[in-house]
Amino acid sequence: MIVASEAIVIHSLRYGESDLIVSLFTKTSGLRSYLLKGILKSKKGKIRASFFQPLTLLEIEASHKNKGTLERIKEAKPLIQYQTLHTDLIKSSVVFFLSEVLKNAIREQETNEDLFQYLKTILLWLDGHDTISNFHISFLIKLTQYLGFYPDTSEISTQFFNMRDGCFQSDSSNVYCVEGVHIEKFKEFLGTTFEESMSIKLSRGIRNNVLSMLLVYFELHLHGFRKPKSISVLNEIFN
């Protein structure tokens, strides 16, 4: 079946001397993996290796056999040319972190246009803004809306956040209940826009604690999710 779709590059892996295996989150078919034969040695082909940098937005035409094997891309071109995402050191570090998160978080070969539109929108937002120190935290929180475990805020005025159950409560009922200044700051992000969340004041320690808590939250709610290796680089950049 020939499919035309917008797509977001999630991950790419060198295979042999000249091939790439790339994972794309497509608008029409969810997460798909493709084998790009000879792309690392080809200088004249229409499909270039540079198109497959992390989180690049593409337009593709692909052949899908839907048998759980690697699919083939017939044509590809950038959907939008980023201005800063892959050239600004800070933003490229954020992009690398986001791609690691998405690699672990998105598994299904199912259409999820709402999630695709969210990712496309926030990537363009990141490309066009410079005040981004809280971006990765806001991104993770809003991502939970599309993955099905956004925190229940009906008791947000209470002291503890129960990471296992995803709710706020007045007492500690298990080892995954956490409290403290970082939880009060976490509450400030809930229900805010990206623009508003950039104004939330966080110290180095609090920002690290909020991020660490969120990654544990993801591990509890997504089977097989692993903490991104790039977290140390991200913490260093924003501190």
Rank of each mutant, 00 (worst) to 15 (best):
Q117D: 13
E196F: 00
T87C: 00
T192R: 15
E75I: 02
L147F: 08
F25K: 05
I137K: 04
L123N: 10
Q81H: 12
Q83N: 13
K46W: 01
S42R: 11
C167M: 13
E61M: 11
S23V: 03
M163F: 01
I47E: 02
S203C: 02
F96S: 12
M163H: 02
I10T: 04
Y82D: 03
S50C: 03
P151M: 01
E108K: 15
E75R: 15
H86A: 07
Y146E: 02
N235R: 14
A62E: 09
K103A: 08
L222A: 06
I8R: 12
K120V: 01
L143Q: 07
I122H: 00
E113C: 01
E113L: 10
H86S: 08
A105K: 09
S203A: 02
I231K: 12
R204K: 15
L24T: 12
G205P: 00
E188D: 09
M1S: 13
L89P: 14
F218K: 06
L215R: 06
L24D: 08
D127Y: 09
L31K: 15
G224K: 13
I2D: 10
V95D: 02
F96V: 12
K120S: 11
Y118L: 10
I183P: 03
N174Q: 07
E184Q: 15
E108T: 11
G68I: 13
